[in-house]
Amino acid sequence: MKKIISIAIILIIPCHFIFSQTKVSDNKVELLIPNSERIDPGWGSGTEDFRNLEILDKIDETSSERRFKEAARDYRISIDIFQNTESSIESKKEEYEQEVNPQDRYEWQKRAREDARNRELAKLLNDGRNQAVQYLIRGMTTLDKIENPTVKSQASFLDLKAGLYREYAKHQFSMKNYIPVTDILLRYIQLNEKYEKESEPHKILAFCFEKMQMSALKNKKYEIADDFKEKKNRHLITFAELHYGKSSTEYQTISEKVMKDY
């Protein structure tokens, strides 16, 4: 699965850089879109439980049936891995709260212990995400090998592929790997009109393209930065339309901000 965006180095006059920098700071995604309690199904902070996935009982092609079940199993393993990781982290936090350390007499000792604990928890979380991602990648690769048109047209096949893409995007986004997130989410919204009309993927895409725009500006790749800005604004508008509705005040506010960015 290709996850590399090739970037050509193009030099533009310095004033363009100053102008573009200003536009990013004035039109940051996190400032335009506040945290919302209403999130599309499957896009919450937790992993999605796929235990009720309907496995096809009658598939003409034996190899396709086998691969579908393998991909579903890898998805399930990925979910279990990360749920166990979250449980382990919560258990660790409870252990920390019960600990008594009379040797920590000074504030710097307490901070040092707290920092060590945070590093341990961060490592547990990162390891859990990486392990989960490996199974998601394996599941996606297995699904890509299925060629039987009957199998591929089934709702269960599409649901599984969407679930794999969604969980993969959530993990990579949490690890700030923005390029693979954009790659998989663009595939996700092309799977079906239902997924294209979810607002959360467009919100995440807008955020990722903004980060990529800022990186391009930092490296003085101005045309690339402009391209990322255009994509950011497009997904920002789409998010506002889907999440708030065109007649809403929020949509009008975001639209006006985006128009000033051109």
Rank of each mutant, 00 (worst) to 15 (best):
residue 35 N to L: 15
residue 16 H to D: 09
residue 43 W to S: 00
residue 2 K to Y: 11
residue 48 E to R: 13
residue 9 I to E: 09
residue 35 N to H: 10
residue 3 K to C: 15
residue 21 Q to W: 13
residue 14 P to D: 14
residue 46 G to C: 07
residue 3 K to Q: 14
residue 44 G to F: 03
residue 43 W to E: 00
residue 26 D to L: 13
residue 4 I to K: 08
residue 47 T to C: 01
residue 33 I to P: 00
residue 18 I to Q: 14
residue 8 A to I: 10
residue 29 V to E: 00
residue 14 P to S: 10
residue 15 C to V: 07
residue 4 I to N: 03
residue 29 V to M: 02
residue 49 D to R: 12
residue 16 H to G: 05
residue 6 S to V: 06
residue 3 K to W: 10
residue 49 D to C: 06
residue 31 L to V: 10
residue 19 F to T: 09
residue 5 I to W: 11
residue 22 T to I: 11
residue 7 I to R: 03
residue 19 F to S: 15
residue 16 H to P: 09
residue 41 P to A: 06
residue 11 L to A: 04
residue 25 S to Y: 13
residue 27 N to Q: 05
residue 2 K to G: 04
residue 5 I to R: 08
residue 17 F to A: 13
residue 30 E to R: 08
residue 29 V to N: 00
residue 27 N to T: 12
residue 25 S to H: 14
residue 9 I to N: 08
residue 43 W to P: 00
residue 37 E to I: 04
residue 22 T to P: 01
residue 36 S to K: 15
residue 6 S to M: 14
residue 40 D to S: 02
residue 9 I to W: 15
residue 48 E to T: 13
residue 27 N to V: 03
residue 11 L to W: 05
residue 24 V to K: 03
residue 37 E to Y: 14
residue 28 K to N: 08
residue 21 Q to V: 10
residue 34 P to G: 02
residue 37 E to S: 12
residue 28 K to I: 14
residue 47 T to M: 01
residue 41 P to F: 05
